[in-house]
Amino acid sequence: MHTLPTIAPERLPDLLAASPKAELHIHIEGSLEPEMIFALARRNGVALPYDDVEALRRAYAFTDLQSFLDIYYAGASVLLHEQDFYDLALAYLARGATDNVVRAEIFFDPQTHTARGVSMETVVRGLHRACVDARARFGISAALIMSFLRHLSEEDAFATLEQAMPLLDHIIGVGLDSSELGHPPEKFARVFARCRQLGLHVVAHAGEEGPPAYIWGALDVLHAERIDHGVQAVHDAALVRRLAAERIPLTVCPLSNQKLCVFPELAQHNLPQLLAAGLVATVNSDDPAYFGGYINDNFRQTFAALPALTAQHAWQLARNSFEASFAAEAERQAWQQRLEACFEQHAQRG
């Protein structure tokens, strides 16, 4: 166990906010705040089924993943032009910088947009331009991961990959998201094999609402390098041992898990259990505009709800996020040094 300077308990909330961290599970469409939805609707002449921002916020009473996705896809309908995607991503990255996010690996769902007649080029070029500008303006490193929608067919995923081929220099990996139940990873075995041949990193949502078997499938069939969510792994002891031994990261999203009723209360979340088992767990915000919190909100509220979590866990979670990222080793080491310095500073203030 890494020896840390002593941090006074009352300093922990400030430490959580100040610590450098990587965010590895953020859906850019899920950072679309109601205010921006209405602003883009006005700019693009899109009619919305809600009278105002507050009426839309009141609709965010989700009972499961599907009830969220219904509103999520409706909100994305205002994204039509390259500038819309640029504005969306830059707003998230500016917010991330204030939360001391030093690296963001951003999911985007092209099928949500191409199905509406928005071109792949429009989506990717807008998002990529924001990533480039955010590094210059905020000092934040950002990269794009293209996610396939698992409720659609593998043929549709192949078509999406074909559309993305001229733009792969702007994309570091592929993922798998949307409705988990009834759509096991095996459904997408061939398209993920092709993505690996192209040199793309591979991640996959598994074990959020789906069973541990979906995590096994993501590992053995898709050859996922990270598991997004993965909280159901605790129900399979052999799987937990494998995840720990192979250091397969889990991109855990506590407020999302609570909002979608994976855990009825945040105090029941199994993040301490994941860490105690030696898993490379990380904290992320998932769809922060819909789930009531960006990454620092997730850290603060989770640590407040789970008294077993300490400064040691805060350090481990941040360090895990760097280890789990697809950034260059030199960058990861630099962020680790910043993390050590941050803890030293807070210990001196304590």
Rank of each mutant, 00 (worst) to 15 (best):
H235A: 09
E344C: 10
A189Y: 04
A89Q: 13
E209M: 14
N100W: 13
H151T: 10
D84E: 04
F85T: 01
G292T: 09
L93D: 04
L243I: 06
N270R: 13
S147R: 02
A281Y: 00
D14G: 14
A318Y: 03
E29F: 03
R135G: 01
D87H: 00
C342W: 06
Q312N: 15
L275I: 11
L40W: 13
Y294C: 10
H229I: 09
S153C: 05
G350P: 05
F138D: 01
Q273L: 06
H170C: 13
P212E: 08
E162F: 09
K259F: 11
A267C: 11
A8D: 12
A224T: 02
A8L: 12
P184Y: 03
R58I: 05
T122P: 07
A164I: 09
L69M: 08
R43A: 15
P254E: 12
G217Q: 13
I248N: 04
P212T: 08
F62M: 12
I295T: 14
P9M: 02
Y92I: 10
D287W: 12
L16S: 05
A39E: 10
F148E: 07
C131S: 11
E162R: 15
I171H: 02
C131L: 11
R349L: 15
G350C: 03
A245E: 02
H346E: 07
L271F: 05
R125F: 00
T282A: 08
A134W: 05
A206Q: 04
P272W: 08
R226Y: 07
L161N: 11
E23R: 05
L274A: 01
R190T: 10
P34L: 02
A89W: 01
